[in-house]
């Protein structure tokens, strides 16, 4: 009843102010939340980096002093260097292979109609959600049945299979945005399919292919579960780190980690530059 005595204009002002206050409170709450989430995501990475320069063997707070000892140890660790070399070899070959199979797969899914297409699509993208342990175990058994010896090459085949999903999803997404009329025009003008692919389709999906390639490289470089089952005597970098972790935590692992973070940062920047679509 009291409300009836006030005019609408009187009522509007405090209401608007209350709305603004609420909005301000909500904004503050969101900003705080975002800040906490960022801290949760990045404090561990800083912990990794900071302790690689700390001159104590144990990773405890407070810090004791600055040292480059752990980096020197890495520099003289020949096993580690072999592992890094192996990882580069595996990641490069796996990336090339997965692109060679994945780009045609994406094109086929986009263009060609064939029986079992739905099953094919489901299978190709399965490794994104399928834990590596299943891929690793099943391919291990394949190689045993075929009588292959495990080596870095079997790891490459495993990685290429697991990474197909990444390439296919990224390239498919780009192909879907590409107007069909471009390729039709090229075909109408008499260009053979391969010509059309090289001069019309490929330039248009270039950045997606590069992006998928970079991502594949990083994921392969970092891969554990598939490598765990498929590698022979040679270790990749993550497998080497994994085996040193069995012996407990050491600042040397932090030093390797810091270098990996640095390397990833360079790749991320590279990926952003490479995949940035040219604005007209």
């Amino acid at each position: 009843m009291v409300m009836a005595l006030t005019t609408p204009a009187d009522k509007a002002a405090p209401k608007a102010r209350r709305g603004m206050m609420q909005r301000y409170a909500a904004d503050t709450a969101f900003m705080t939340f975002v800040a906490i989430l960022m801290a949760f995501l990045y404090i561990p990475i800083w912990v990794l980096i900071v302790f690689s320069f700390n001159d104590s063997r144990s990773l405890t707070w407070p810090l004791t002093g600055f040292t480059l000892e752990w980096y020197e140890k890495l520099w003289n660790n020949s096993q580690l260097q072999d592992a890094i070399g192996n990882s580069f070899y595996v990641a490069s070959c796996a990336t090339v292979l997965t692109l060679l199979v994945g780009v045609p797969a994406a094109l086929a899914l986009h263009r060609v109609n064939f029986p079992g297409k739905k099953v094919f699509r489901r299978l190709v993208v399965l490794p994104i959600t399928l834990p590596g342990v299943v891929t690793g175990i099943s391919m291990l058994n394949l190689f045993r049945v075929l009588g292959f010896n495990l080596s870095l090459e079997t790891v490459i085949l495993g990685h290429a299979t697991a990474l197909l999903a990444v390439v296919v999803t990224q390239v498919s997404a780009r192909l879907e945005r590409l107007p069909k009329s471009l390729e039709e025009a090229s075909a109408d003008l008499g260009a053979p399919p391969l010509h059309t692919f090289l001069h019309v389709t490929l330039p248009n999906i270039r950045s997606a292919v590069i992006g998928a390639g970079l991502l594949s490289f990083v994921l392969s470089f970092d891969e554990i579960p598939v490598t765990f089952f498929l590698t022979g005597r040679d270790n990749t970098l993550p497998m080497y780190i994994y085996s040193t972790m069995r012996r407990g935590v050491t600042p040397e692992i932090n030093a390797v980690g810091t270098l990996i973070v640095l390397f990833s940062l360079i790749l991320i920047i590279g990926a952003v530059i490479a995949t940035r679509e040219r604005k007209k």
């Binding site: 912990v47 302790f51 970092d222 993550p238 991320i268």
Partner: peptide, 25 residues
């Protein structure tokens, strides 16, 4: 938020071991 995906998964798991352990941070 996406960037940590590019940083070794193994190391991101390892760092929690160094944070949460009895001798940890």
């Amino acid at each position: 938020v996406i960037a940590p995906l590019w940083v070794s998964y193994l190391l991101r798991a390892y760092v929690w071991k160094t944070i949460l352990g009895t001798e940890g941070i």
